[in-house]
């Protein structure tokens, strides 16, 4: 409990405050918004991969579903954005429920199957025969509800809640039982942990997080195409950020996003063609030399990070 309070004070409060206040000092608000999106997505990956060991390679599927669920609720049902946001998140959770049978698969198979599932959703959404429902490949325009200030504010709230969830998972009994499943599901089950229920819950929370931020993303950018919100780079970035910092920690994914997405925006503006190369080599180096990420390294050096 005490550790939870400490983690909140060290990570959640300052990060949320920074996200809320920085727009007053720095004018490229969209860059800040993208930071928030990746902070949330990296923590979402952390919830499912860090605490259960299942790598959601197709995590973007939930993000895109959230974005489309939100947009279609606005277009067809004329709902208020905040209500539509709930519907978008519900759509993502529904998709996650549909995909729960994938948990029967082990490591790499789960990753590939979830990747395929994200592609499948994208193919359905962008199919021209569904033009009347999803606008097919022709894209979404939500100019009638465009409101960058409010949607930015909602994104900050989602960030705070998501960080709160990881603090809870790290310090609670529930998080502990999840990690015991990850390390050895058989002994966890023998110790009385309801393996299937705990894992499904983590999966749904993770999908909910991605669905919510996907909906806000759609609200904030307001004009987009299916390939915008189903781009594989969302999954890839979120996973790499989380891995770099170290999963199953609170600060790991945060460090990953701030450091790597920061570099991305610096290199991305001066020498973008080398970016993918640097990223690829970085991933390889991580796996070979630093499989646990940065946070365990810092801890080994005696720096106590949450």
């Amino acid at each position: 409990m005490l550790r939870g309070v400490r983690d909140s004070l060290v990570v959640v409060v300052p990060l949320t405050a920074a996200a809320a206040l920085l727009p007053f000092a720095y004018s490229n608000e969209l860059l800040l918004f993208n930071f928030i999106v990746f902070l949330v997505l990296a923590q979402g990956v952390n919830v499912i991969y860090g605490f259960t060991g299942y790598l959601p390679f197709g995590y973007v599927g939930f993000f895109g579903t959230g974005a489309y669920g939100f947009s279609l609720a606005v277009i067809h049902l004329h709902l208020f954005p905040l209500v539509a946001l709930g519907l978008g998140a519900a759509a993502a959770v529904l998709l996650a429920l549909l995909l729960t049978p994938l948990f029967r698969l082990s490591g790499a198979y789960f990753a590939i199957a979830s990747f395929a599932a994200a592609f499948a959703v994208y193919e359905v959404v962008s199919n021209p025969h569904l033009d009347a429902i999803t606008k097919g490949p022709y894209g979404i325009s939500l100019s009638q509800i465009y409101n960058p200030q409010l949607s930015y504010g909602v994104a900050v709230v989602i960030l705070a809640v998501t960080l709160g969830v990881t603090v809870y998972l790290k310090n609670s009994r529930f998080g502990l039982s999840l990690r015991s499943i990850r390390d050895d599901s058989l002994s966890a089950a023998m110790a009385g942990v309801n393996v299937v229920r705990a894992r499904t819950l983590a999966w749904l929370i993770s999908a909910l997080i991605a669905g919510l931020i996907g909906g806000v993303f759609a609200w904030y950018v307001s004009v987009f195409y299916p390939e915008t919100v189903f781009g594989a780079e969302f999954s890839v970035f979120a996973i790499v950020f989380a891995l770099f910092g170290g999963v199953a920690t609170v600060s790991g994914p945060v460090l990953g996003v701030i450091f790597l997405y920061g570099i991305y925006n610096v290199i991305g503006i001066s020498a973008p063609q080398y970016f993918q190369l640097i990223y690829g080599l970085l991933i390889m180096g991580l796996v070979l030399f630093l499989p646990g990420g940065v946070v365990p390294l810092l801890r080994r050096w005696g720096i106590d990070v949450p």
Binding site: S27, N28, E29, L30, L31, N34, V221, F224, Y225, E227, T228, G231, E233, F234, N265, G268, I269, P272, Q273, F275
Partner: peptide, 21 residues
């Protein structure tokens, strides 16, 4: 001019960069 690498997410921040910065 900036390179968006055909990514809309990158393009969005870069458009904003051009306007605001």
């Amino acid at each position: 001019s900036y390179d968006d690498l055909s990514s809309t997410a990158t393009a969005a921040t870069l458009y904003n960069q051009l306007i605001t910065r």
